[in-house]
Every structure is written in structure tokens, then in C-alpha cells.
Design a protein around this nucleic acid. Sequence first.
DNA 1: ACCAAGGTAAACCGATCGGTTTCGGTACGG
DNA 2: CCGTACCGAAACCGATCGGTTTACCTTGGT
Lengths: 185, 185
Amino acid sequence: MTGEATRDRLLDAAADLFYREGVGVGVEALSRAAGVSKRSMYQLFGSKDEILAAGLDRVGPAFTAYLLPAAGDESSHRERILHVFRRFEETSAAPGFQGCPMVAVSVEVKAPEHPARLVARRYKDQLTAFFRAEAEQGGAADPERLARQLTMTFDGASAWAVMHGEAPDAVEMATVLLDAAGVEG
Amino acid sequence: MTGEATRDRLLDAAADLFYREGVGVGVEALSRAAGVSKRSMYQLFGSKDEILAAGLDRVGPAFTAYLLPAAGDESSHRERILHVFRRFEETSAAPGFQGCPMVAVSVEVKAPEHPARLVARRYKDQLTAFFRAEAEQGGAADPERLARQLTMTFDGASAWAVMHGEAPDAVEMATVLLDAAGVEG
DNA sequence: ACCAAGGTAAACCGATCGGTTTCGGTACGG
DNA sequence: CCGTACCGAAACCGATCGGTTTACCTTGGT
């Protein structure tokens, strides 16, 4: 097996396992689940922390691509923003939903400068940047502020879903904020 | 030392340590930090999980008392709600803030029926219930919905603070929602 | 003065932690 | 046809995991 494939299998398993069971899972269990020997793991990465960060970085693009509207999307800026919250409501209702993976890692890893936390923040900032750009083009009174509020709505709804086992109405709340900011569509 | 005091010292240390370092801390470290022998720990509680739940339950009342306005408070319902977010902004700016302890435990512990998660949800529901009561008396169009939105604002702001190391403007966002729901004051 | 009750310290249990190393293959390029 | 680069299996390292147990000590009530 080529090194690329080994690396991919490892990181996929890492992302999945760390999300489902928490960052406390041991490298032994990870090795087993990934079908990759510890030897190979430690030749590809220097430590479990690096694997955690790289695993997050691997699912990051899928995370973004799933939430954001498709490339050729033609709907209004308001609708493009609401698309994110519709996607959210889909996933958060599914069994086994453990909250936003970026937030989960940031909460579980206490060291603020841990590489995985930097990765998590990067993807979360991507989401906020998307909101800001759409808010701006949508004519929001204060795009920066609205973007921050929408991101908080996303993560607040995520926390609600974790604690109550059911998705709250995130689209509705985003709508209120869009209305207040004067984003039509 | 009386049994009460031992129990209290243990639970205080547990709440503090589990919050600061995560639920992964070992019972050995907890025993050391609390100044309570493992023997005593396991006579008072049956397992680490029970200690975790009991520790959360011990700080719960302080958590609620800190956020909610004082008993004899005379301000408007709107102001009483905003009081919670002002309190939040105080704490979330402090160094070592790791997010809402109730959410943190719910994220770190993956088993949905873990006793500690039931405790966490109970206190979070207390907060939502407070919002709902104030929203109702404040003349909100849909008190239940507003209460849910305010709780999501609280937890969303908490997540933002964890990821960015600085408190977002939660009071401002709550204000937008109060305005939209027609709560004056 | 004495005896439980309840505390501590510390050894101990098997399992697992993150991480390293050894060994034996096996596939591929010269 | 052979070297070598990569791989997996598994032993191994000291440390720690959650939890139990033994042995000793302090304290308060009678």
C-alpha cells in the first residue's frame, strides 16, 4: 500500500474516532480502527497531537463544502446564508450528532495553542468570513457584527442539539437576525 | 475531619479540576488536588462518573446564582434578562475561561445518558426556564421561542469566547432578539 | 479508658496510556 | 535477481488509568 493511502485511511479514522469518542481515545485503538500499524503512524506523524490536528484539517474542507451553498448557486445572499442553517438542521438531528467538530475539539483540548485548536479556529473563521461576505453584499447594516451573530447562532444551536438531543430552530433565529440587520431577499 | 467537609472539599476540587483540565483527569490526581485519599473518595462515591456528576451538581447552584439577577431585583424583565449576558461577558473575558461548564461536560462525555450530562441539562434548563418566565412577563410574542434563542445566544457566545479568546458582544445580540420579540423595558 | 467511625498513606490489581523498537515480510526499481 | 524502502505484528518502555485493599492513625462519645 502506498504512503498516501495509508495516510488517508489513518486521518479518516482519526477524524471519525476522535469525533465520536473524544480526543481521549488511545493511539492503540486508533491504530486498530484505521488498520494502520502504530509503526506507520509514528513514521507519518510525530505525535498523537499532530494526528489530531491533521485529522481535523482533513475533514475541514468537507465540513465547509457541506455547509456552504454550491459554487454555482444563484440564490439571494439571504438565502445563501440560510442554506447553512438548513444544512445544520439536517445533521444535528441525526443520531450520534456530537456538536460542531471544530468546537468539540476546542472544548476538549484545553491548551489554547494546541495545533488542533488552531486548525479548528481556521475553519470556524472560514464560516464567519462567508457570513460576512454575504452580509456585506446583502446590504447588512453592520456585516461584521451580523457575521459574528450568525456564527454564534450556529454554535449555540449546536450546543442545544447536543444537550437536548434535538435540533432547535436555527433557521428561524438566523432569520430574525437577518431581518434586524436589514438583509432582504 | 467530618464527612461533610471531606465530601465538600472533594467535590469542589472535582468541579475545578474537571473544568480546567477536562474530564480525563485521573482519580489519582483528583485525590491529590482535593487532599482526600482515594479510599475516602470511593467510600463516598461509587465511581469517578458519580463524582463528576456530583461535582457538577455542587457548582450548579452557584452557576445559576451568579448569572441570574438577585432575589430582590426590581428592574424590568428586559433588564433582568440582559443581566445574564452582562454577567457572561464578565466571566468569559477572564483568562482560563473554558466555556460554559455544563456544555463542556456534555461535549466531553459522549454517552448521552451519563449522570453528569443529566445534571448539566438540568441546570441549563433552569436558565432557559428563567428566560421563558421573564419573556412571558415581559410580553414577548412567543416566550418559549425567545427563551430558546436566548439560551442559544448564551452558548454560542460561550463557544466564540473559547475559540477566539475574547468575549463577543452577547448583550448586543440578546438585545436584537428582545427587540424582535417585542420585549420592552 | 476504651471503642468504634472515619480518616490517611500506600501497596496493589490488571489494563491501558503515548511512544519506541525489533523483527520478518513483501513489493518494486536497478 | 537483488537491494532497499516501506509495511504490519508485536514486544517493550515507564507511567498512569479506575478501582480495591491492607494497615495504621486520629477523633469523639460514653
